[in-house]
């Protein structure tokens, strides 16, 4: 039986803020990461915990001013079933479908995936590629943090100890395309070896703009591959461009060997799946 720290279950955000301000407190939403950490005693056991499961302000999926806004407590199952997500952000729906299996998708939340900040977090490259903005809040007020600035170092984020993730805003620029690819050890219940999101806007003759290449499981945090983006920006997805982008990506990444895969494999496969996405986009 695992440790059982004390836990509060506030109904409203302001109550949650009060508790967070009172001292070190570990929030728990769907519990799919936190409960594993506590059960397996992976790291120190928190002294106090905060149950977010009753806070309705953290729920909901809506379209606001041209952005798709998802409450932090939105589960993967809700993402998969959401007509708005399917219409405006199908890549996120695809990513949600690759996480765990039904049991995890029913409980795990988008906010939890972000706060846990695993380098292998499956939705995180999509946040980076989609220029998502994370709204965080606490007693000191609310602030928006671009996803790009959120993941600071291994499992360390821009979230202060007294803050909660409230929602995630995905801007939906016209003409933007977003693709997702996950490579895992098996077809369900697998932590990724490589996860990739590729975004671009295409207005015809000028080539691709606002290209984003974001990856998970290849560095200490989810990352963007800026040099590769530079190769693709202003270009068309031709075979030559794809070759150059793949080579650049392979040169740019510095993955590691770990229990799930090898550095060589991750580097090679990242290049190949990018090449594949570009081939599909170019239609050659």
């Amino acid at each position: 039986m695992p440790a059982e720290p004390s836990i509060d279950t506030p109904r409203h955000l302001f109550e949650a803020y009060e508790r967070l301000a009172a001292g070190p407190t570990r929030p728990i939403a769907g519990g799919t990461d936190v409960m594993v950490a506590i059960t397996g005693e992976l790291g120190p056991i928190p002294k106090r915990m905060l149950d977010l499961s009753r806070i309705e302000e953290l729920r909901g999926i809506s379209l606001e001013d041209g952005s798709l806004v998802l409450g932090a407590r939105t589960t993967y199952t809700e993402i998969r079933r959401s007509a708005l997500c399917r219409e405006h952000l199908p890549a996120l729906v695809e990513a949600a479908a690759t996480i765990g299996a039904a049991q995890i998708q029913n409980r795990g939340t988008l906010g939890g995936n972000i706060a846990n900040a695993s380098p292998a977090g499956d939705t995180l490259p999509i946040l980076l590629a989609a220029d998502a903005v994370i709204l965080v809040g606490g007693q000191r007020g609310e602030r928006e943090v671009p996803a790009d600035d959120f993941f600071i170092s291994y499992r360390k984020t821009a979230l202060a100890p007294d803050e909660l993730i409230l929602h995630v805003r995905f801007p939906l620029p016209r003409g933007r395309e977003l693709r997702f690819r996950k490579v895992g050890t098996r077809r369900a219940q697998a932590i990724s070896k490589v996860v990739m999101a590729l975004a671009w806007e295409d207005f015809g003759s000028t080539g691709w703009t606002n290209v984003r290449v974001a990856l998970g499981s290849v560095a200490a945090t989810p990352i963007r591959a800026h040099a590769t983006e530079a190769v693709l920006d202003g270009a068309h997805p031709t075979p030559e461009v794809a070759d150059r982008a793949a080579e650049t990506l392979a040169g740019e990444l510095q993955p590691i060997d770990d229990v799930r895969s090898t550095a060589d494999y991750r580097r090679m496969v990242s290049a190949r799946i990018l090449h594949r996405l570009l081939r599909d986009a170019g239609g050659w």
């Binding site: 794809a242 070759d243 793949a246 080579e247 392979a250 090679m268 290049a271 190949r272 799946i273 090449h275 594949r276 081939r279 050659w284």
Partner: peptide, 8 residues
């Protein structure tokens, strides 16, 4: 090593 090919 770094390319996809036309059959996946």
């Amino acid at each position: 090593p770094l390319r996809s090919h036309d059959r996946r």
